[in-house]
Design a protein around this nucleic acid. Structure first.
Length: 571
RNA sequence: UGGGACGUCGUCUAACGGUAAGACUGCAGACUCUGGAUCUGCGUAUCGGGGUUCGAAUCCCUGCGUCCCAGCCA
């Protein structure tokens, strides 16, 4: 197999394997299912997809593709109270954004409601299911505990006829919500709680986003999932570790029904430092206004990271390399950022932008004059070409790039020192202008016309190259700089009586309004990703308006100087 | 105190009875018109205790630790 996006990269580094892939290799080798591999990605449409889902998507689609199979997209829509069309739409868009194509058509568990109902009747006829009149509280009491067996429902031995009648009446809407359930008749003494006569159907007079009011009884996950897999001919049904205890039940239904038996295999859920991957908690962040929405660039949702500027390629590389196992681990955020930088470094065009400007006046440059200098768009990609950047007497540079009293390893501009302006000239700082309060308002510099383009004919060297923007042509921009949403590696680690909200990082969003951009940056479209030289990768936010661009910082560049500074401060 | 699963560098993953390997991070250096990128080097790990074996991360026993399960959620 050839990776589609990297023709120059031979398959030198073999795709990392994992235990599921080994199982499939073995199945294919032994001719199980005639070598067919069909997987599925089965989200419940009750929220937005997040990075954890990306791992599952990459696994399912990746494996099927590798073995010449296919992957179904199936919505597990068996709980109408929590599910909405909005979520269906966003999930479809997210899967496509990640770059995967499912086998047509899109499936829904709700497509199988009638078949599931018919199978339930079959189980009733076989004495394998019964209608139970216990309410939720009573059922809990009968279930027993982790250490004590349960006790059978008093309704367990109803006749087949009575069960058939009652179940039909449940379906016909004769009973209120919660009045009765249909339960599988398995083993109330099983050490696995899932096998203690689990509920198959509950009465729910709720409108379903697809089936409307056709049904007032809805199948439970355990009853619907395996059979849905079976109907679709799924060969390998991959899910996360918490479903291990459900596998015996999954197998039980399929076996009792005598239908095609997929194999459920469980793998570890993704955890990321400084990040929460729980739909419930993400929903709370949105509803309580801690973030600006599901697609807030600080959110770990796919909509959020897309807006943040993370690329599908980076996400796929990340997922392919974190591995699949059964260990409960936590990936460091830095690893994700590594893959983002790696991808963007190859592809993002470079521009110059000054986020915290200080004015520089080139004293020996003529007033009112502008010249256009050539700048390389991407040193990593010659085909990206060059562009013109205006240079004039008044410029902006980054405040951090000047220190009146430079510390030992500071190479940038300071009084009397010469540095290079990227793609421009060598300049030397002659004097510093301050206001009455002592704040620096302006740097007076001179330039060397012989260094045009950045080279010195006499061969003299400078230790630093800094970025800059010509004041006259500069575009004003809002730049949103993001930090982690939580200040703790594990946001769930809290003191007694607190919840994860206590760990929200108050500095997760920093809005810079006085950013200065080189003019070429005005031609970009929303979601375009670029590098601001020496600062990081940024992308255009959809909040941008024609006169007022808004950028999001995707991820900062690795910053050796910041590291030195931090270390020195710690001393 | 039931059942299910899992313990390998700081983190994640590999090694399938035969020299514990890779990635990220960290540190040091080279190079550089981005203190970017790239390149080079260095470092740290088999949960504990027994056993089987010529040989154990791997098999067995035992202890310890972590995660999941008592929804008419998925």
């Amino acid at each position: 197999m050839t990776p589609p996006n990297s023709p120059e990269t031979p398959e030198s580094a073999p795709r990392p394997s994992n235990f599921i892939r080994e199982i499939i290799i073995d199945d294919v080798r032994t001719g199980k299912h005639n070598g067919r591999v069909i997987t599925r990605f089965p989200p419940e449409p009750n929220g937005y997809l997040h990075i954890g889902h990306a791992k599952s998507i990459c696994l399912n689609f990746g494996l099927a593709k590798e073995f010449g199979g296919a992957t179904n997209l199936r919505f597990d829509d068996t709980n109408p109270e929590k599910e909405e069309q909005e979520y269906v739409d966003s999930i479809i868009a997210n899967v496509q954004w990640l770059g995967f194509q499912w086998q047509d058509p899109i499936h829904y568990a709700s497509d199988y409601f009638q078949q599931l109902y018919d199978w339930a009747i079959q189980l009733i006829r076989g004495g394998k299911a019964f209608v139970c009149d216990l309410n939720a509280e009573q059922m809990r009491q009968h279930r027993g505990t982790l250490t004590e067996p349960g006790t059978p429902s008093p309704f367990r031995d109803r006749s087949v006829e009575e069960n058939l009648d009652l179940f039909a009446r449940m379906k016909n809407g004769e009973f209120p919500d919660g009045a009765r359930t249909l339960r599988a008749k398995i083993d109330m003494a099983s050490p696995n709680l899932n096998m203690r006569d689990p509920v198959m159907y509950r009465i729910l007079n709720a409108e379903h986003h697809r089936t409307g009011n056709t049904w007032c009884i809805y199948p439970m996950y355990d009853y619907a999932h395996g059979q849905s897999d079976s109907i679709e001919g799924i060969t390998h049904s991959l899910c996360t570790l918490e479903f291990e205890d459900h596998r015996p039940l999954y197998d039980w239904f399929v076996q009792q029904l005598g239908i095609f038996a997929p194999r459920q295999i469980e793998f570890d859920r993704l955890n990321l430092t400084y990040t929460l991957l729980s739909k419930r908690k993400l929903l709370q962040l949105v509803q309580d206004g801690h973030v600006r929405g599901w697609d807030d660039p600080r959110m770990p949702t796919l909509a959020g990271i897309r807006r943040r500027g993370y690329t599908p390629e980076a996400m796929r590389n990340f997922c392919a390399n974190i591995g699949i196992s059964k260990t409960n681990g936590t990936i460091e955020l830095g690893l994700l950022e590594h893959y983002v930088r790696e991808d963007l470094n190859k592809r993002a065009p470079r521009y110059m932008a000054v986020l915290n400007p200080v004015k520089v006046v080139i004293e020996n440059y003529p007033e009112g004059e502008t010249e256009w200098l050539d700048a390389v768009n991407n040193p990593e990609d010659e085909s990206a070409g060059t562009r013109k950047v205006p240079f004039s007497r008044v410029l902006y540079i980054e405040q951090d790039d000047f220190k009146e009293d430079p510390p030992r390893q500071f190479f940038r501009l300071s009084p009397g020192r010469e540095v290079r302006l990227r793609w421009g000239f060598y300049i030397t700082c002659q004097s510093v202008v301050k206001d009455d309060a002592g704040n620096i308002v302006e740097l007076r510099c001179t330039y060397d016309p012989a260094t045009r383009g950045g080279g010195a004919p006499d061969g003299r060297k400078v230790k630093a190259t800094i970025h800059w923007v010509s004041a006259e042509q500069a575009l004003d921009a809002e730049v949103r700089v993001y930090n982690t949403l939580f200040s703790k590696e594990n946001p769930n680690e809290v003191e007694e009586g607190q919840d994860f909200l206590a760990n929200i990082n108050p500095n997760s969003l920093e809005v810079i309004t006085g950013g200065k951009l080189e003019p070429a940056l005005g031609t970009l479209k929303p979601f375009d990703g670029v590098q601001f030289e020496r600062l990081g990768y940024f992308c255009v936010d959809p909040d941008s308006t024609p006169g007022k661009p808004v950028f999001n910082r995707t991820v900062a560049l690795r910053d050796t100087w910041a590291k030195i500074e931090k270390r020195d401060k710690a001393k």
